[in-house]
């Protein structure tokens, strides 16, 4: 199913932070992982991802480091900072409130089925 892009823009930051919550990742890995976890519903363009990652890094939500990975070139990994964790929690709460409200408007309590 194709999803309207504008639906995703608001939550991309949260999704990225969530991906980094448990493991450090590099850009390509994040896109792959996101596709896998959303069963191909979220396809994030690299061109959207990197500016977002760099902005989050400026805001001190995530930080990057180079590793000498198994491959020939060192990869640029990203990790969540303390501030980032806080931001993720806030975003999650905000999201929950939002989806609950949307679902209530859409169809009472039947949303639970989905």
């Amino acid at each position: 199913m194709k999803i309207d892009k504008s639906l995703m823009t608001g939550s991309t930051t949260m999704l990225i932070l969530r991906l980094l919550e448990n493991t450090d990742m590099y850009g390509y890995q994040m896109i792959e992982e996101l596709e896998k976890r959303s069963q191909n519903i979220f396809t994030l363009k690299a061109g959207t991802l990197y500016p977002l990652l760099h902005t989050l890094e400026q805001q001190n939500m995530i930080e990057s480091y180079d590793t000498k990975a198994d491959s020939a070139r060192p990869r640029k990994y990203y990790r969540l900072t303390k501030d980032g964790r806080k931001m993720l929690e806030e975003k999650k709460t905000e999201w929950q409130a939002y989806t609950t409200a949307v679902n209530q408007v859409l169809g009472g309590h039947s949303y639970v089925r989905a």
Partner: peptide
């Protein structure tokens, strides 16, 4: 193609830096 529009990507990155 997967990367998106290079001008747009560049502009967004410019904003970040």
């Amino acid at each position: 193609e997967q990367m998106g529009d290079p001008v747009l990507v560049g502009k967004e990155l410019d904003k970040a830096h």
